[in-house]
Design a protein around this nucleic acid. Structure first.
Lengths: 153, 153
DNA sequence: CCACAATGGTTGCAAAACGAAACCAAATAA
DNA sequence: TTATTTGGTTTCGTTTTGCAACCATTGTGG
């Protein structure tokens, strides 16, 4: 009775969640985006149990989200760094952050600003090719043949 | 030894994950965005255990992501619908979907298109006020006072 | 060089969450 | 009226989580 596998549900969202959909993984990724690289620093900043951290880091490395780099003079000192795939989760993490700020109020001491201008970021939105923002009501789900998706039931 | 609580970590991302950060919640939200509303349809389309589904729907309702609407003629028939807060997760779900398509290949039979034009959506990106896309390297984390955040360690 | 702390784990245990299946009552359809 | 659908709850065995203890290297201060 293992946890349900999401990677074979034929759904992109499911297979994304299969990689980073647990309680800790995205928090680890977010922390890495803040600059954290060392095992101990992840542990202290997140307050995560060591065995869970170990397990999550391994899974993130397995899935190509992070890499373990040997930085010891004679081995046995490591850094965990985001890969391109991991850094590409920036959109997801930022969207989550803004969603939480918008609906739960900003209980975060940290703010994200444009490095160049120091201005706050624009809200992350889904857009069409012309850059117009789209809500879920402005899109359609179609199958390979372009036919509109019909909900069973 | 309860599951670690994320809502008091003083981090927006953490408190977002506290609401929708488990394996199933975002999948339920995604399914609701496809049009699913009924308990049984969620169960069949996701293949989730009934007790877990029940628990997750309750939590989503508690957190204001969905509402339970009575649609029975004499009660006892319900629909679960997204609230504005729930619909606002569209960005997160779409970013996850695109991330997975980009890095794991598209194993999804479903495509998202602009309802008006039928064109595929633009990639979700983080942007500055001028609409320029930003990567994680183009942003800075600052505290309330505007001082740059320094990583401990 | 030696003692001591830090790093990056692993192991064992108890509590909690999960998954599957059985069961159940109300509402609806045949 | 009987059967089926809906929306659950209960039970039970397995897995995951959190905590603390332990351990082998690796660095550091003297």
């Amino acid at each position: 009775m293992t946890r349900k596998r999401f990677d074979e549900m034929g759904c992109c969202v499911a297979s994304a969640l299969n990689e980073v959909g647990d309680w800790w993984s995205l928090l680890i990724v977010k922390q890495a985006m803040l600059g954290t690289r060392r095992y101990v620093d992840f542990q202290n900043s997140l307050g995560i149990a060591k065995n869970i951290l170990c397990n999550r880091l391994s899974r993130l490395v397995e899935n190509g989200v992070m890499v373990r780099v040997d930085v010891g003079e004679h081995g046995k000192r490591y850094e965990y760094r985001l890969t391109d795939k991991g850094r590409d989760l920036f959109t997801v993490v930022t969207a989550l952050r803004q969603w939480s700020e918008r609906w739960n109020g900003a209980q975060d001491s940290m703010k994200l600003v444009d490095r160049q201008t120091g201005e706050p970021l624009a809200p992350v939105t889904v857009q069409n090719q012309q850059g117009q923002p789209l809500t879920v009501r402005d899109v359609r789900f179609v199958d390979e043949n372009g036919k509109p998706f019909e909900e069973a039931g």
